[in-house]
């Protein structure tokens, strides 16, 4: 208790600044109550489209790369050297945070959507390859054994014995990752990596809070549309034949 009081006493509050800040805070709230969609409409539109493109392309590329890595990182179907290499890739890449990678890539490649695309692809690979490897390690191995017993090659064994077992999870995880990438791509703009986040950042820098409010609403709307459409598609994935 004493410690709490002492702790609060040590906070140095400059009340005159707070008073001035209140004024600006109020402006902020007023601006947010009147979002301005029109004056920067083309910027917002371009930002949103760029966002969608970054998300989709990076997710697709990420999935394509993570499937072979995930296969390699599953102990039950890969040879030991392949397994070790793939596990090492997964382990090392997992230790890097997405934002850190983005900042790094912006520094290397300069501002723009390319950095954002690479960051999200990387994050998708990290996420998917590990979970995919675990899914393969948990599969029913008798099904794969049966395909092996017919004289199928390694690829055929994967295609018939492994793939049908992991496909529902693969689709589920991919959709989930697309979802995350959608949100992340908005954030990545703030560190200079293009997309709607960059537009948002610019709006704040110019104190155009009404435009910023409009952008935030548009991001929310985009996410909401996306979420409702994916729920219906996810249900259909589980009971087809492959």
């Amino acid at each position: 208790m004493l410690y709490l009081i002492a702790a609060f006493a040590s906070i140095d509050v400059n009340w005159s600044w707070v008073y001035e800040g209140l004024d600006r805070g109020w402006k902020f709230i007023v601006a947010f109550a009147n979002p301005d969609f029109t004056s920067r409409a083309t910027d917002i539109k371009e930002g949103l489209i760029e966002n969608a493109v970054i998300t989709i392309v990076s997710t697709v590329v990420g999935i394509a790369v993570s499937i072979p890595i995930g296969l390699g990182a599953a102990r039950n179907i890969s040879a030991l050297p392949v397994y070790l290499v793939c596990r090492a890739i997964v382990a090392i890449s997992r230790s890097l945070n997405g934002i850190v990678v983005a900042i790094l890539l912006v520094a290397i490649l300069g501002f723009g959507p390319l950095a954002s695309f690479l960051t999200l692809s990387f994050a998708t690979i990290v996420f998917l390859s590990k979970l995919l490897a675990e899914e393969i390690e948990d599969m029913d191995k008798v099904q794969a054994e049966a395909i092996r017993a017919t004289g199928g090659s390694w690829l055929q064994r994967f295609d018939y014995g492994v793939f049908p077992q992991i496909v529902p999870r693969l689709i589920g995880l991919s959709i989930y990752r697309l979802d995350i990438n959608f949100r992340e791509s908005a954030v990545l703009g703030l560190v200079g990596a293009g997309g709607i986040g960059a537009t948002l950042n610019t709006a704040f820098d110019r104190y155009e809070f009404d435009t910023a409010a409009a952008i935030l609403l548009m991001i929310t709307a985009q996410l909401w549309c996306w979420n409702t459409s994916r729920v219906s598609s996810a249900r259909r994935c589980n009971d087809g034949d492959l």
Binding site: D140, V142, Q143, E145, A146, I147, T150, G151, G152, S153, L155, Q156, D159, Y160, G161, P164, Q165, V167, D241, L242
Partner: peptide
Amino acid sequence: ALVERLTVMKNVLSGRLGYVPFWRTL
């Protein structure tokens, strides 16, 4: 040890995997 998510027909045909080239089975 049937492949649960494949049709009966594809399960039966999987017995031919050793005879048919990969791209056709794919």
